[in-house]
Design a protein around this nucleic acid. Structure first.
Lengths: 243, 243
DNA sequence: TGGCGTCCCTAACTTTTGTTGGAACCACGC
DNA sequence: GCGTGGTTCCAACAAAAGTTAGGGACGCCA
């Protein structure tokens, strides 16, 4: 993958959520990034570690999760290219969760010092990154609501639509279906239900003619009922910099 | 309440989670803060609003919440004196949730421009506030795990212990019991269960001799089993600046 | 090509949680 | 002192979700 393509995703992301100047882009383009490949299901950064670099998703799907004493795992967020899932490690030095790959992924690593220098040099870029971590936080809030208040079928629909909206933003929406490369086990972990129940819910949505999930791809069968079920209000994604 | 007492809570908070210099403290002490009183259950900032100031909890308990289409409400976090629950509004201009009081509260309001100027003047204070929003985010992550993976009694115990730890940090732990001024309805909203079930769980913990909740006060009956049940690991509070 | 390991899928049964409806209690204002 | 409204508490029943235990499809690779 060419070096500029790696940065393009990041810059586009900062661009869509906030304003950014030409000089800022040039500066970001000059950042040294170490690219590494990971297989699926790899742990990139582990709970308890003290990373010295941040991880940019260049290609592939990643997830953040926490595992409790009983062994149950909760997926906290799903990440797509252009995002920096562990930006928080810049100031919260000890990881309080895991960062793992869902699919084979290309990841870019930027050293903390590099980012800290960038912030000193360009306070408005620092604000952009700050804003990014705040959107991250807003997505956690919505995730809490999803897991805490919605019935399981609505939870699944909501996660699907959030993912679809985010894929749309980075221009990865090809046709009527979209990628959601999670096993039913992982879907259960994301929704706070067991894999067995996740299967029940997936089947029900298929039988009801609302949405189909097959081999990591989502196909919407009835858009109106899909939206209605998900109870989705995308405001929490904070995608208009003007707002 | 004297003006310096208002700021003391804030400074102490920034102090415990990070390092802060004498000059920084002086600068923060000089910030203009408008103090207002609120009754219990008042909406301070509403979902959808565009606030022009941030809200410092001086005295009392507050909560953030979201209400979905079905009318169900999810409490996202509980806030105690010294915290700025809506710091995110500095960069996320439209609120995506409500900020409400739980008890009658004294709140201090700091204008966005004031804080923005402070950040330009003192980049390291900006980093302190950034770090604060990241801890906020870390607490959301743990809240997701709580609501998504733990059985209801453990959820309640976990929220109780988190609150106790935070009250301890601001020196509000008087003796064996501590404040948790939520109705059973609100406890249900925090844990993602109904008020009826919240009542069942509270009763069960009392009957099991683990913990008692009476009139907004928590009394621990069996500390060992309480800790065991809650599965609490305070790392996510990120309270050691050295770490 | 056969075996192995995932994942997907299902059924039967248990447990947890939600729903409904109502009684007791308590603080507060009049 | 007496309502009144909110909270707490409870029981009976319904619905949702967890548990256990498998069978079957599919891809991988020896």
């Amino acid at each position: 993958m060419p070096s500029d393509a790696i940065r393009a995703a990041l810059v586009r992301r900062l661009h869509t959520s906030s304003g950014i100047s030409e000089e800022d882009v040039k500066d970001i383009d000059a950042l040294p990034i170490a690219v590494r490949q990971y297989p699926a299901e790899a742990i990139v950064v582990r709970d308890g570690e003290r990373p010295s670099e941040c991880c940019l998703v260049v290609d592939g799907f990643c997830a953040r999760s926490k595992t409790i004493a009983s062994g149950r795992r909760q997926i906290l967020s799903i990440h797509i290219p252009g995002e920096i899932p562990d930006l928080m490690s810049l100031f919260l030095h000890v990881m309080d969760h895991d960062l793992t790959t869902l699919t084979p992924s290309t990841l870019g690593f930027i050293r903390h010092e590099t980012l800290q220098k960038l912030h000193r040099r360009r306070p408005n870029v620092a604000e952009l990154f700050w804003r990014d971590t705040l959107i991250d936080s807003a997505m956690f809030r919505e995730w809490i609501v999803n897991v805490g208040q919605r019935p399981a079928p609505a939870r699944l629909a909501h996660v699907m639509i959030e993912l679809r909206e985010r894929l749309r933003i980075i221009g990865r929406l090809d046709g009527a279906s979209f990628e959601m490369p999670l096993t039913q086990e992982q879907i259960g972990e994301a929704l706070g239900i067991t894999a067995v129940h996740a299967n029940r819910v997936i089947r029900q949505l298929r039988e009801d003619g609302i949405v189909e999930l097959h081999r990591g791809r989502v196909t919407v069968l009835d858009e109106r009922r899909f939206l209605e079920l998900a109870d989705f209000d995308g405001r929490y994604l904070h995608q208009s910099p003007v707002l």
